[in-house]
Amino acid sequence: MSARTHMPVGQEAAEVKGWIGAHRFLLLRRASQLFFLLLFLLGPWFGIWIVEGTLAGSRTLGVLPLTDPFILSQSLIAGHWPELTALTGGLIVLVAYALIGGRVYCSWVCPINPVTDAANWLHRRLNLPKGWQPKRGTRLWILATVLIVSGLTGVIAWEVINPITMLHRGLIFGMGFVWALIIAISVFDLIVARHGWCGHICPVGAFYGLIGAKSLLRVSAANRAACDDCMDCYAVCPENHVISPALKGKDGTTPLILSPNCTNCGRCIDVCSVDVFAFTHRFDDHVVTPSDPATAPEPRAARPI
């Protein structure tokens, strides 16, 4: 087993499923991030106004309003009751992410995700120590702090430093000094703390995690009996504490990854050479047992080192 864990992450999956197969969800995710960014950029770049505005608030095809519910919450606490347009937009976003998983926003839409993913890629390449790892609850404390500060100052507080909307707005309306903020976050994730920003600090992610705590779309380790302990899923998962309860659960426990911290990024599905994981819904707690003739894995000989 130790030999396996020393293999490059994802190599085995790439050998078994092909490179595309082992990067399916990663590619889809990058495409999705690019898609949502392009939707906003088509207007200012090419004059095709499908979506106007930014991730904070937008208007699609001149009618559909969408508003960031986290910003709206801060606005409410800061003492402003928004107009119906913004409230409607916030509700639509809230319901959508409550269904598909709040942190889908983090891994499939947020423009900071490619930045921190790149920092993490380099972090792995340079084999750096994981560094400062704040407790899992830290981002919830920060979330509470942001809401309290909004109430005390009467200002939508997180927008003063929110790198997500700043980068997004920067790309659409003009960067200013946002690049300095992006470099700061990259350095933070590269040197100070592995998965530091998205995994431990960002209150936007914490907020969306809470929204999607009971979401329908879930990853399940249904085929966990086939797990050969290669540890690749733990290596690629940005929130790898969410895996164990599902993957290593005793018989009779749910194979579903139910933690609100899971971003539904699907990288665990990609890197698993024996296809332990799959997307499903939260009521599908079906576990594949080795006696199941259809999907039972063949016993595998130890691979050469």
Binding site: S58, S75, S150, V155, I156, R169
Partner: peptide
Amino acid sequence: EDDFLSACIRCGLCVR
């Protein structure tokens, strides 16, 4: 200004 900063979500639709 004080109320504005509690209300403006900085979406840029007025600019558009």
